[in-house]
């Protein structure tokens, strides 16, 4: 038995090492955020804030007040994109996994093609479109572009989940007198919750991190999202060098809401990923 025991310990040790490797950059960001820029300039890296601990980077980062506007924009856009994308993608996924209909194959293929198209060439057209209907610097203008970019992957992912739930369960419920819709909602839908969470996480990350479209569709400073706010720090002003302490503090602030969102859905998500991707 000891062979298996030591094997297990070795694996656990490896797991801990990998955990440290993956958490280290995140730790380094937070660590640097609490060290003053002057100290960060020195040549020897500091692995703990220790006596250099300061909160000034955070107050400095938030001081110019544009942070809360950017946070508001990012949260509003991300929630709208996640909500709309999940509903529309879910309906689409049900269609292609529960029904046979003409055009089904081309729809699935089109979804894959969209993901292969590089986005860098599109922003001129996207700008023309959104500005022609006067929706520049608005949540709606950007959300429409993000939703279209995220739906293809979400439909693919949800398709696997819906297909994973046996239709017989629904039929059985219908035999007991439930309508088709009631059966679906009572039997199939609860089983899909993990899948919806997993797809929602993907959509959240896409909208929260997006930069190149936002630069052009949200030009006004008052309408910028968090990635634009963060980019502003890195480019500081022409004469002051990049204030690294504030960049790290700003990066930590941008990362916190995502981490909190993840921890909330973490439980559901891992089981979610269990169901969906496997049926893919």
């Amino acid at each position: 038995m000891t062979a298996v025991k030591t094997g297990r310990i070795a694996l656990s040790a490896l797991a801990i090492v990998l955990a440290i490797v993956w958490i280290f950059p995140v730790y380094w960001m937070a660590n640097s955020a609490f060290i003053s820029t002057a100290v960060l300039q020195q040549f020897t890296p500091h692995f703990f804030p220790g006596e250099y601990f300061t909160f000034a980077n955070f107050t400095g980062a938030i001081s110019d007040g544009s942070f809360f506007g950017a946070l508001g924009m990012s949260v509003t856009i991300t929630l709208i994109v996640v909500a709309v994308c999940l509903v529309f993608a879910f309906l689409g996924a049900v269609a292609i996994s529960r029904f046979k209909f003409r055009g089904r194959k081309s729809f699935v293929l089109a979804l894959l093609l969209i993901q292969m198209l590089p986005a860098e060439g599109l922003f001129i057209a996207q700008y023309k479109m959104v500005s022609s209907v006067g929706l520049l610097n608005t949540v709606l203008g950007v959300s429409v572009i993000y939703i279209a970019a995220v739906i293809p992957f979400t439909v693919w992912m949800l398709r696997g989940f819906v297909a994973g739930v046996p239709a017989e369960l629904e039929e059985a419920a219908m035999v007991d007198g439930l309508s088709r819709f009631q059966a679906f909602m009572r039997i199939t839908f609860p089983l899909l919750a993990p899948g919806l969470v997993a797809s929602g996480v993907y959509a959240f990350l896409q909208a929260w991190n997006e930069f190149t479209v936002a630069v052009v569709l949200l030009p006004a400073e008052a309408a910028q999202t968090l990635p634009l706010w963060l980019r502003g720090f890195v480019q500081a002003s022409a004469t002051r060098e990049t204030d690294w302490g504030q960049v790290m503090a700003a990066s930590t602030i941008v990362a916190i809401p995502v981490i909190v969102f993840f921890l909330i859905v973490q439980g559901r998500m891992t089981s979610g990923l269990v169901g969906g991707a496997v049926k893919g």
Partner: peptide, 14 residues
């Protein structure tokens, strides 16, 4: 898994 989540959650720019 938690350390993976932290890494995955970190915004690209950061």
């Amino acid at each position: 898994q938690i350390s993976m989540l932290f890494a995955w959650a970190m915004p690209v720019a950061a």
